[in-house]
Design a protein around this nucleic acid. Structure first.
Lengths: 201, 201
DNA sequence: GCGCTTGTTATACAATCGTTCAACAAGAAG
DNA sequence: CTTCTTGTTGAACGATTGTATAACAAGCGC
């Protein structure tokens, strides 16, 4: 009875949705590692351990993969704002966690920001999703205003809070040494306390 | 008397310093137009109307040109902060001018930010110059505190002001529609009034 | 077990990338 | 005018870019 020469399959077939997620993850890893210049068909497919043809097959073009990555990132951000159960405090903690695990996320955002204005598909996605993000923040700030019995200009407060967060993210993504996560959270709370008054009890 | 067939010179010799400035300007134009992906030897030299060999000749490598552009940009920023005569008000007005002329500057910054962490020469320059920028801002804020007879935490105030400005720049460089220059200036003033108290007279 | 769909691979392709280098010539020095 | 320095050009290099495409085979339905 001779052993069956069962050759190891040369690849594994995966459902398109799962394969897209795999490629999105690989693309994000490349963006985090070397910015937009490392967002390359070769590098992404090497990261995903997959042949070069797959990106075109599943996304049509490289830019569409980048747009899909943006959708994933902004979706996670919006979820973390909309789905918070502990109010603005939980949101801030989620935005500036301790430890180095956020580094990758920030590096991806930095790379995406730089390409939004240069990639039409990305700009379109940004304008659509950014409105949702801003609305979610305004909603959370409105609840905080109710808690502290103040009625500030929610519109301006949202601009200031979002911009402050973006700026802190920017500083920390470029060089985490300059501003610690704790400093960032403290800056957020300082702004909110100034805008909405101190906690009531 | 036959006319001398004076052939038009095929190029013009320029002093190295002037040529470097020309290439820096061309490189900035490329960054503004298409981000870091358009920062290419071919495109830069085409923009400068110069042959491909010049960048290597004057800068050694492309990255060094990028670092030189960073130095130019941060130098202008620091000068506008240090050299202001009308206090923080003049600084804010300079940071968020009306009209579209700032667009190019912000696009260049966005492209540079994305590469700082990936280009050692850039990170080194950033760390050195960022400290100067922060010191200049702290100095201007200290003067404002004296004017308004308050003594807040200048360190934290500087972090908040710089991050807010960075965030507003980021939003406006990605998509100027979202936040107008006037909104940005108002947000800066709101933060300062909250931190340092309202103007005394 | 067999055929078929289709996810996957691997090659090919022209275009462009950053850099090197030899030849050229502009313009100051004599 | 002649000589020399050196800023400048332009071709060439191998490597890498994004995409198209044909051959392949994994694995489900029968």
């Amino acid at each position: 009875m001779m052993a069956t020469p069962k050759t190891k399959p040369r690849f594994r077939r995966v459902a398109p949705d799962q394969r897209r997620e795999l490629l999105i993850a690989a693309g994000m890893a490349c963006l985090a590692k070397g910015g937009i210049l490392d967002f390359t068909i070769d590098r992404i497919c090497a990261e995903a351990q997959v042949s070069r043809g797959l990106i075109t097959h599943h996304f049509g073009a490289k830019d569409n993969l980048l747009a899909a990555i943006y959708e994933t990132m902004i979706g996670q951000l919006i979820s973390s704002v909309e789905g918070n159960v502990s109010g603005i405090g939980g949101i801030i903690d989620g935005m500036f966690p301790d430890g180095p695990e956020q580094r990758e996320t920030l590096r991806i955002w930095l790379a995406l920001w730089g390409e939004i204005a240069n990639t039409p598909a990305l700009l379109k996605a940004h304008r659509k999703q950014y409105a949702r993000y801003r609305a979610a923040v305004e909603n959370a700030l409105g609840e905080l205003a109710r808690q502290r019995k103040r009625q500030p200009d929610i519109n301006q407060a949202a601009i200031m809070f979002i911009s402050l967060v973006d700026g802190l993210w920017l500083e920390r993504s470029i060089d985490p040494r300059q501003i610690s996560a704790e400093d960032a959270r403290a800056a957020c709370w300082r702004l909110l306390d100034l805008l909405f008054g101190p906690p009531l009890s």
